[in-house]
């Protein structure tokens, strides 16, 4: 429950009505999905994705990211709540909204016996708003942007995992979009590809496209996102700008020493909560303490301090703090 409490403070900005409203690319209120199995995969989330932002949608496996995205796009019927996209109520305005939304949902999916180009042509043909005269050019450009031009004529069946992922992104880029919803776009890509996707997202965002990027790869989010939302067991436990999230993170003190147990004992005596020891380093939340005071106490207690460091946690730590460290998936 500490996680939710903290989420409240971080998400304060998003509940401020003055700064939201129809200016948001995505806005959900109490959206809930309960599957027929009875499982509540998404539980009353209030997502706010401001226009022009790159929104990192984080969460461990099974936390409900894909389920949320499916509800946003109208693929599954929400059990409760409401949402709007690009300022229009969904799913009522889906026919008007979705042509301006590019999506990659839970990995790419195409007809295996068709080439990459033919697959894109099929999706383009299904779009009543697309101009058939520009189809060839647009498909060519989309393929070029994801670096698939050379493999465009190959059957999808023969594509590698990364090529498939790239084709999925190309499909999302067939039209100029106001909003891109990318569910784990770098899944299966090589480091080079990951970097390219990041560059692509940055350039799209620069051009004014709002991007919702779901991921469990924090490094991705860290470097490109302006906003972050964190899912945990179906709930949105934290949401805000990336700076908000960083400041919400508790600074930590790291002490490297040859006598870590003594160091931990000193910190405990001073009232620092739960210092932990691993491989010659003591780590503890700084809390309200002055780092200088702590160092002085350690030195006075004859603890041989080799290194003393205070850092604001990176997002990785925040993420782990919000979602727990266990390996088991939630759900």
């Amino acid at each position: 429950m500490t996680a939710t409490a903290r989420a409240g403070s971080v998400a304060a900005r998003s509940t401020d009505p003055a700064r939201t409203g129809s200016g948001d690319a995505i806005r959900t209120e109490g959206r809930t999905k309960r599957f027929r199995s009875g499982q509540v995969a998404v539980d009353r989330i209030d997502l706010v994705v401001p226009r022009g932002s790159v929104y990192g949608f984080l969460g461990p496996n099974g936390s409900g990211k894909t389920t949320t995205i499916r509800m946003l796009l109208g693929l599954i019927t929400p059990t409760a709540g409401s949402h709007s996209m690009l300022g229009e109520p969904m799913p009522r305005a889906a026919a008007d909204v979705l042509p301006r939304v590019g999506a990659l949902v839970e990995g790419p999916a195409f007809h295996p016996h068709l080439s990459g180009r033919r697959n894109l042509a099929r999706l383009d043909a299904a779009d009543r708003t697309s101009d058939p005269r520009t189809a060839t050019t647009r498909i060519g450009t989309a393929l070029e942007r994801v670096g698939l031009t050379a493999a465009a004529g190959k059957r999808y069946r023969a594509y590698s995992l990364g090529m498939r992922q790239r084709l999925g992104i190309a499909a999302a880029l067939l039209q100029p979009r106001d909003l891109l919803v990318l569910d784990e776009p770098t899944n299966g890509l090589d480091p080079q590809g990951t970097r390219e996707v990041r560059g692509l997202v940055e350039s799209l965002a620069h051009g004014g496209t709002t991007v919702l990027l779901s991921s469990h790869l924090l490094s991705e989010v860290d470097q490109v996102c302006t906003h972050v939302g964190v899912m945990h067991v179906g709930r949105l436990v934290s949401q805000g700008t990336i700076e908000d999230l960083r400041t919400a993170a508790v600074p930590r003190v790291h002490v490297r020493t040859s006598r870590p147990d003594d160091a931990a004992a000193v910190l405990r005596r001073l009232g620092v909560p739960a210092p932990t020891v691993h491989s010659g380093e003591v780590v503890a939340d700084l809390g309200p303490f002055e780092p200088e005071a702590l160092l002085r106490e350690l030195v006075l207690a004859d603890v041989p301090v080799r290194e003393f460091r205070v850092d604001t946690a990176d997002l990785e730590d925040v993420f782990v703090a919000l979602t727990g460290e266990g390996f088991d998936v939630s759900g």
Partner: peptide, 25 residues
């Protein structure tokens, strides 16, 4: 992926117009 030369996309500002066509069929 030519992220560098990927210029800003033209934003579709107005509501897209839907046309009746047999393309999908």
């Amino acid at each position: 992926m030519s992220a560098v030369e990927a210029v800003a996309p033209v934003r579709a500002t107005s509501r897209p117009r839907r046309v009746v066509s047999t393309r999908f069929l």
